[in-house]
Design a protein around this nucleic acid. Structure first.
Lengths: 199, 199
DNA sequence: GTCTATATAATGATAGAC
DNA sequence: GTCTATCATTATATAGAC
């Protein structure tokens, strides 16, 4: 079929085209899951020709790794802002329970289990980020309900991320039992922990 | 190609064939993720012809729902055993941190986000199970470190499941930072909670 | 740099032989 | 009940025109 169905050829800055492709990849991962990230779907979502996706990202793994790295970069910037805010612990909780952010993180985690190229990338960043978070949040934990020996800062961040991840994952899956109570508990604990250390 | 490459036709009890198919589905989900559950892969794993899978489970959704229901049935039996054991809270934690069990649960959760037929099934069971767990574990929480008002039983089970899920998910993805400390903390808390109510 | 066209492989699902 | 053969669809990836 050689009917002139095609779109016009638009000359773009390579960085613009790549950004369009990565944006589309992210949208698809969020809305339909990582399995929906196919050459065609990405191209369609981005309004580009399928071939162009392969031009910039030869294989699907290349595309996914590039998308993950950009997300990581952005997350580190958000994290820096969070940790330098007035109430870092509360800001950290808000950041982790932000649905788009955490939902995307969950997709990448699921992806890590099944794409080796991504797995190494994810593990490296996750371990690094947890250390960074624990170190930076430590000063904000002024009034811990548990002894520092039994509950060091890395436990606090691990627990917060665990609960935030579960709340977001389950909400997306239509599960809500216990969520209101758990959110209330975390709010209560964070309020206590961030209160002046004299209660 | 009509070379006689084929396997012999073995007459089985339908229940046996179905069990083989569901076993293969579970194995694939655990080892390669839900995306690896294709008609052909399941048939190969089960040592059966691809056509037979569709004979029992016309569509892939039918297969996945059947597999999920069998898993659910087994989980409820395990849960009953856990809750009637000597130390239900500790047994519950061991059950939730059992890697194959939790890894499979995580795959189904990921699946729920992208297959509508499964989503309803999962949400229904998850909400039901959480209520069941909270109710049954309540008596075992003899010495809670936090007030019952701010941390009711449903919070305890939600938190335990959240942390167990994260530990298993992350370990599978090659992430380990903070895990040892968090496991130690949970052990410490569970020991306190299950101690005689007089400390 | 961008598009169309196509080679190749894998998928879900069905028809029909045994 | 089980298997083989096959169709229609969709995937990754590449070649080449513009």
């Amino acid at each position: 079929m050689s009917e002139t169905s095609g779109a016009k050829r638009i000359r773009r800055d390579p960085e613009v085209a790549k950004a369009l492709i990565l944006d589309a990849t992210e949208t698809l991962m969020l809305e339909e899951g990582y399995a929906a990230v196919t050459t065609r779907a990405v191209a369609k979502q981005a309004g580009l020709a399928p071939g162009l996706v392969h031009y910039y990202y030869p294989s699907t793994d290349d595309l996914l790794v590039a998308a993950y790295r950009r997300t990581t970069q952005r997350n580190l910037e958000s994290l820096t802002a969070v940790l330098s805010s007035e109430d870092p612990l509360q800001a950290f909780w808000r950041f982790q329970t932000d649905t788009p952010h955490m939902a995307l993180a969950v997709e990448y985690m699921a992806l890590a289990n099944h794409r080796k190229a991504i797995k190494a990338e994810i593990a490296r960043y996750a371990d690094y980020a947890r250390d960074l978070q624990a170190e930076a949040l430590a000063p904000a934990i002024r009034n811990a309900p548990l002894d520092h020996e039994i509950c060091p800062p890395v436990c606090v961040t691990t627990l917060l991320v665990s609960v935030a991840r579960t709340l977001v994952m389950e909400e997306q899956a239509g599960i809500s039992r216990g969520h209101a109570e758990t959110r209330a508990l975390v709010r209560w604990l964070l309020d206590r922990m961030t209160a002046p250390a004299d209660a």
